[in-house]
């Protein structure tokens, strides 16, 4: 598989971050960074990473299935993650999630037919003092109201 030059540079730096003989340490960051470019952890990607890190595809797979941010199917271009954990719940995070479900017409971990949006109800993401919080891909939005959520989604829709 070929990756963009920027990603290759990042991966080279990554594999040089660990002591000799400890190449496997690069596995999780490598999965995260490549997933961002490829869109999901495809069987081809699993093989590629296994080759690069000199481990078996099964060793890669057992890690992929453990971590919630690694997925085998592509999420939407804009992955909307709504936190409903305790601090967000106290600021109506659960209602915000319901609102997002209706607005997007999607359920937990579902992707829209055009591949633009996906929705996930997530656990605490370290934004508790600015609840309720959401993440769109890696971007945080704090103190999100249903109106603000509509605006965010509408402006992303307009990009197309």
């Amino acid at each position: 598989m070929t990756f963009s030059p920027e990603l290759e540079a990042k991966l080279t730096k990554l594999v040089n971050s660990y002591p000799a003989g400890r190449l496997k340490s690069a596995l999780i960051p490598m999965l995260m960074f490549t997933q961002d470019e490829v869109g999901s952890i495809t069987p081809e990607l699993v093989k590629e990473i296994a080759n690069r890190l000199k481990i078996t595809p099964v060793q890669v797979d057992e890690v992929v299935t453990y971590y919630s941010m690694l997925h085998k199917k592509p999420m939407g271009k804009y992955h909307i993650q709504v936190c409903t954990n305790i601090s967000c719940l106290l600021w109506d995070g659960d209602k915000l999630y319901e609102h997002a479900r209706h607005k997007l017409g999607l359920g937990h971990k579902e992707v829209s037919a055009d591949g633009q949006f996906s929705l996930e109800e997530v656990e605490c993401m370290g934004a508790c003092s600015w609840a309720p919080a959401i993440q769109v891909n890696y971007d945080f939005h704090h103190h999100v109201t249903p109106e603000k959520l509509d605006e965010i989604i509408d402006s992303l829709r307009k990009l197309h």
């Binding site: 340490s25 999780i28 057992e62 890690v63 919630s68 690694l70």
Partner: peptide, 23 residues
């Protein structure tokens, strides 16, 4: 070094496993 979504990896020994490329 980035994690990939797992509360348990905040527990010190699980974190070290994760840092070594494991579950």
């Amino acid at each position: 070094h980035t994690g990939a979504g797992a509360y348990e990896c905040g527990e010190e020994s699980a974190l070290l496993e994760s840092l070594e490329g494991n579950r």
